[in-house]
Design a protein around this nucleic acid. Sequence first.
RNA 1: GUACCUGUAGCUCAGCUGGAUAGAGCGUCUGGCUACGGACCAGAAGGUCAGGAGUUCGAAUCUCUUCAGGUACGCCA
Length: 595
Amino acid sequence: MYFNFQRDLAAFLQSEYGVQGLDIPAELCPPEFSGELSISCFVLARQLKRNPMQLAAQVGEFLRSHADILSLEVVKAFVNISLAPGALMRDCVADAAALQARSRLEPAERQRILIEFSAPNTNKPQHLGHVRNNCIGMASASILARVGHDVVRVNLVNDRGIHICKSMLAYQRFGDDCSPETLGKKGDHLVGDFYVRFDQELRKQIEELRQNDESLREKDSDELFLQTEIGRAAQEMLLKWEQGDEEVRALWEKMNQWVFDGFEQTYKRMGVEFEHTYLESQTYMLGRDIIMEGLQRGVFYQRQDGALVIDFDDPRLGSKVVLRSDGTSVYITQDIGTTLLKQNDYQPEQQIWVVGDEQKYHFQVLFAILKALGYEWAERLTHMSYGMVNLPSGRMKSREGTVVDADELFDLLEQLAGEATAERNQQLEPDELQRRAQSISMAALKFMLLKVNPKTTLLFDPQASIKFEGDTGPYILYAYARIASMLRRAKEELKEEQAALDWSLLDSASEKRLALRCAMYPAALHKAAAELDSSVLAAYLLDLAKDFSSFYKQCSVLNAENPTLRQTRLELSERVREIIGDGLRTLTIEPLESM
RNA sequence: GUACCUGUAGCUCAGCUGGAUAGAGCGUCUGGCUACGGACCAGAAGGUCAGGAGUUCGAAUCUCUUCAGGUACGCCA
């Protein structure tokens, strides 16, 4: 927030105490005190190294005679002030361009940022966990871009490896040459079915092994993988794939294409887009030459067993193998390679990975290796780790069938939103109904995921997710639609000429509150961007929508007592509409003019 | 075992760079449509901020510790 009185108070205190760059804190006044704004002199006192209470008295004295201050109360170390309506509105909302300008970073602070997210495997359809990743990735990119950064979104699809061979093998054996067309099924779901089918067969064979050999009963399933016939067959297929076997490659391309087509639809529904998609099949061999070069320079060393290793100073990181004794790559080798590739392709000042918090250690190690290799940009790599999504029944487990499928969830929410919309709009055309149901359901889902801090483990309650009341996306959409409706009517009823504006007429508590909330928008954007936290912006939009709803109930706009008041309230409402619209779009949610 | 994360109202979450009497939504209970869209508004009840100790004028917030839950610690990805 920026007020003239803050500037004047800062100038006064700075000359009084001979300091520079004083920051005058102003926050919303708690309802139990009179006034709209509070200045905490604890914060001021720390900057000036003075006694908070004495400072409060001094601040009070200065502001009491300030033209913008209507009344004021000093309570302990707090100065609670009530602003003259004209001054409050002038500083908060009258100048829309100033508000907009404050939302962008100084040019010097803007960066080129590369953000990687989604990174799906091509062996199964996306589930709720991917949905959270996609939402966080898209919203983070959008928030960063909104404050002025140059953002590049990239995907890295894991399209090769043993997992896709499992699906391929099961398809070869049990697929009967079916296809998405013959079964009328989305390609990613079809491939996922064969992944499950493989797992069934594998477990059956492991069970048989254990039946026949008591010594195997204690062994972990993973250890027995290569002892099963089907496990060996999958491994063999992977080798053939790496050797470029034509038949295997053809099948791989066919099934991957099915998955890509399926993903395309899912992404489209969510509005997920990338500037570029990297394919692991094209990048998995990267990194080895960098390791060899690092070996020359003594960054890595060859252990007695032949593996190339790095030891870290930090005991928490321990040591890490970067190349197997047989000379092949490990996961981190590839990641080193793709990080360099991305750096070369886009020259970002910062790289961000949106990846679940279970991979925290992996990224600590990755970053430490890149620093050890001497890349100066390695200081500016960020793992944006987010929490897992749990269900009331616990963790999602694909083997136990408790995974919430993304497409099915979208369908369910869309149907419920459609029902709710139809109830309220009996005359709606089917096309329009469907369009609104799509928007409302996606807004509800995205907002639910984005309103909680990304770091927290999220509990997804299916029952709660289908509600459209309270702290939800639809609540904010509703506030927006009501304003849009009001502005439409005002336009229709427009008399010959528009009345003048007089901001000083907006003197009620709810009007002042709403205007103050509008002025807080840039700060919410900046905080969300700086902390990579969509929940800051989501919480702000909820507060704004609540303040608007309260104002809307209390102050009649279209039927205001006089044309000037009406016009000024319309203008305030328009400002709220712009901010809600802009804020929702920044969260990748599209507002609706009617709902 | 070691490291990291989490523990706030019945439930889901804010608040965590120390500052006023710890907030919101859901759920429960009261009220409110002859004013612009009731997917709304106004209000009530509901808390030992997991327990303990410390630092401080002041702690949900910082430190230590105990307990509870989660995750990671591969020549898997």
